[in-house]
Amino acid sequence: MKAAVLSFPGSNCDADLLWAIRDICGEEAEMVAANHTDLSGFDLVLVPGGFSYGDYLRSGAIAKFAPVMTALKAFADAGGYVIGICNGFQILTEAGLLPGALQWNQSLQFICEPEPLVVANNQTAFSTAYRADQTITLPIAHGEGNYYADPATLAALEANGQVVFRYAHNPNGSLNDIAGVTNARGNVLGMMPHPERAVEALLGGTDGLGVFQSLIHATKGATTVAAN
């Protein structure tokens, strides 16, 4: 399995994702700068957390124009697995790869804390390593993680089983307690909590490993997706 970790100017969780995949999961991973236009040869693309382009204007609003985003869209359209974490989730919604939007937390403050989540659907490529309804704890660290979608979209998400993770104690005001959601096809996931921060007992827990293990399993079952 070969993963691409996108790196936008201002991304700051890119190295953490690289560490999680390479050093903890033992899989191949490469950093791909935002000005690259080719994602061929990768089985998985990760869009990291941070403050892309300073998150000035609005989180993810500038990143969606980065050259790599065209390649990312093609990769996703071809069925490739994409996961956006935190700022990555924001970027994916801004780019239209995922439904909904992330607003300021209800408290209007940045929140960093371990957050219990319920695995709402363990039948996705991102969650098969978990049991149905399993409660896991992953750190959150965001100011704009309050998930919003219009009622029709929300109903469709629920009906299609696109909600993968829900907060057990909603920290930010997200509708339907949504912490992680996929596109209709099920190959693109966005989530605000940070699984890459929960892959070592030394750092407080390993509940995040399941996301990466699920993806590794899913990609090894598929053939390499050729972008473009």
């Binding site: 940045f110 960093c112 804390e113 750190p139 890459e196 921060r197 750092l203």
Partner: peptide, 16 residues
């Protein structure tokens, strides 16, 4: 804690 949680304490994934 309600003040400290406004700081990202874990980015770089080395905080024990």
């Amino acid at each position: 804690a309600f003040l400290y949680q406004r700081y990202d304490a874990q980015v770089q994934t080395n905080t024990c």
